[in-house]
Design a protein around this nucleic acid. Structure first.
Lengths: 213, 213
DNA sequence: TCTGACATGTAACCAGTTACATGATTGG
DNA sequence: CCAATCATGTAACTGGTTACATGTCAGA
């Protein structure tokens, strides 16, 4: 079995099957952290630390990153000329290096934006655990109910945070500029996702309780 | 910035901050492919090739894996005694090695099932591209509309496949055993996800067209 | 005096991806 | 004869995680 796009590059040359992936697909690599950082820095220049906090909040819901990785990628982007740093001395706080996007970074982002969107790779551990619960006995499934309830609370908190953020940042949806409109529609995606998860978790809980008689 | 659980392990010892992660968290590593394979093999023993096809269909929606990785992990699981292989000679087809879960694998799975569910790491490239479209001009956003429409079709196809699979595999939801009930609720999660995505993509398209005047 | 927020890293490791490889059989 | 399906790999790479490290200042 091969991934769909991979299979598409299967050829036969003089009776032998060959793959010509580097020529055909070298430009089709999905995103790495770089592009998310570029978008974030275009919205607002900032330090590695500030980026890390943004990844905890807004962007991080669609692309996670730890501070360690952000600093490493930022360094590479700097040597590649995608971003430039400016040392900012602060009083009462450590100095910081504020990054902004350089022309080379902007064109790298534009190139990436025009590539086709890669299908999302979903990794949902809970779904695997639910199927695994079939092999864990009634006691295991009862423990899973407790765990799903806990897990549901975390998603309820996330939804509450999103809704509070929406009320705060987009109080008047009619009066938004382009960037804000796009940020708002992405946030609405997060809200829709969390609502869907909560509804599904209720379905999961009902199913597990039903199995329990 | 550190991940939440990481921060929780920050201590101060004799004025110095230290992390005691290996003691506290060594058992809290999330899932790797192993556990998804164990669940799949418990549901039905099979070869690496068969597993790869299952990952393309049902399980793969929640945990992707290529055949290369499956073979590698399967080998490790075999040397660890988590699975055992049986050589099966077939006529008209290559031989295959059919794997089934060994007691050690089953207890490894049980241990994992009782660990708390890790929060999902969502990676949604499209969301980043939508925010990036603010820096790509009107022409770029117009191209994005076309791309989102294409992308929407792929999700429509996935939903159609899910619904067909549901009608085929769960025609009578009242007469299911435990394993089937759990498989069904996971499939319903996939269906809910796809419906949510389609609704959101309509919202995205309306927003992009609105920006276009 | 201790905690928490601010601020920036290094190094080892590992999970997963990409590229490449081979060989048999069935069916159009 | 070609394509598709069945069947199983190796090797290089890279993105991301985990563990560990250091220092300042504000405020309880």
């Amino acid at each position: 079995m091969v991934a769909p796009w991979y299979r598409a590059a299967l050829f036969r040359v003089a009776g032998r099957r060959v793959l010509l992936c580097n020529e055909l697909h070298s430009k089709m690599r999905g995103m790495a952290l770089e592009h998310a950082i570029l978008v974030s820095l275009l919205e607002q220049p900032g330090s590695g630390y500030e980026l890390a906090r943004r990844f905890e909040r807004s962007i991080g819901r669609f692309w996670t990153a730890t501070h360690q990785q952000i600093y490493r990628v930022l360094k590479r982007m700097e040597t590649d000329g995608w971003v430039t740093a400016e040392q900012i001395g602060q009083e009462g706080r450590p100095d910081k290096r504020s990054f902004r996007v350089a022309p080379a970074g902007r064109s790298a982002l534009t190139a990436w934006l025009h590539e086709p969107v890669q299908p999302e790779a979903i990794r949902h551990e809970l779904a695997v655990k639910i199927r695994g619960a079939a092999f864990d006995g009634a006691a295991g499934r009862s423990a899973l109910i407790t765990e799903v309830e806990r897990y549901r609370k975390t998603h309820q908190d996330i939804l509450a945070r999103y809704l509070a953020g929406e009320a705060r940042d987009f109080p008047d949806p009619a009066a938004l500029d382009v960037g804000q409109s796009l940020q708002h529609v992405v946030l609405r995606g997060g809200i829709a996702y969390e609502r869907m998860v909560l509804t599904w978790l209720d379905d999961v809980l009902a199913t597990l309780r039903d199995l329990h008689h």
